[in-house]
Design a protein around this nucleic acid. Structure first.
Lengths: 136, 136
DNA sequence: CGTTACATTTACGTTAACGTAAAGCACACT
DNA sequence: AGTGTGCTTTACGTTAACGTAAATGTAACG
């Protein structure tokens, strides 16, 4: 009959998720988390834990906190909002394309850099290859 | 015998390189460019053009402006500074590794997102898959 | 001489996602 | 009462690479 003590203190949250207290409070001000209050202290519920999981996952996906907030809100309202869902999907696809483009550009830059570095001793000259007569 | 008019105005530079005047002035304050002065106006020499090419290339490589400045300085002093060159190479390799790591992470995230988006209609549920009972 | 075009300096603003004090409750223990 | 631990709020600081005004200058055109 002891209450499940279903909540975590801020420190426990930090340890559990590998984030700082500042981060958790910050997320609260950004309306990403809504911990309960015992007087002045925060108590993070199972919901908060689930949301934080999503937040971190969203960050891995490259979403901004604001985007994540919107996604979480939609999710909260129950997925019955088809139009919104579609827009969400569009956002997701956009992000995907951006990421792919980014990755491709990275790939190019990496290839460039690799050949430059491998090509010889003087990577500087390689780096500067496009500059004829930089020093007259 | 007409002087080659070998310099470009700031606007011509902007057009030639697709950057803003602010950017060029900013680069000057950062000691990346050293345009000549005709009274108050800037005149960008061939050297400046070469340097700007390198700057933009360096950015494509993911170097910061400060890193670029150092590289340009080393290059300017003539490549006779072997130790420096080696350190430079090390920097380049570090950057390469960072970029590869970044690219790999991006690859992972992309793969994730792709399966999520493809897997079904509800990308939201997919996005939220790790959150059981987010809405009790 | 007035306008237009282009240029200049100075300096505050922007963005994201927190970091980092500073100062102070609120309890538990001793 | 004192000490310590954990938590709180408030609020300024950080970083990079410029953006964006504001006020002014100068040179040529008409």
């Amino acid at each position: 009959m002891t209450q499940p003590t279903d909540t975590l203190s801020i420190r426990q949250m930090c340890d559990a998720f590998g984030v700082t207290a500042r981060t958790l409070r910050f997320y609260e001000t950004k309306e990403l988390l809504f911990p309960l209050r015992d007087g002045t202290r925060r108590h993070f519920t199972k919901q908060d834990r689930a949301r934080l999981t999503l937040i971190l996952r969203g960050k891995r996906f490259g979403f901004s906190l604001e985007e994540i907030r919107q996604l979480l809100n939609m999710y909260d309202r129950g997925g019955s909002n088809a139009a919104q869902l579609l827009r969400t999907l569009a956002i997701g696809r956009d992000r995907l394309e951006q990421m792919q483009a980014q990755r491709d550009e990275l790939g190019l830059a990496i290839a460039d850099l690799q050949t430059q570095l491998a090509e010889g001793q003087s990577a500087l000259d390689a780096f500067a290859q496009a500059a004829p007569a930089a020093a007259e």
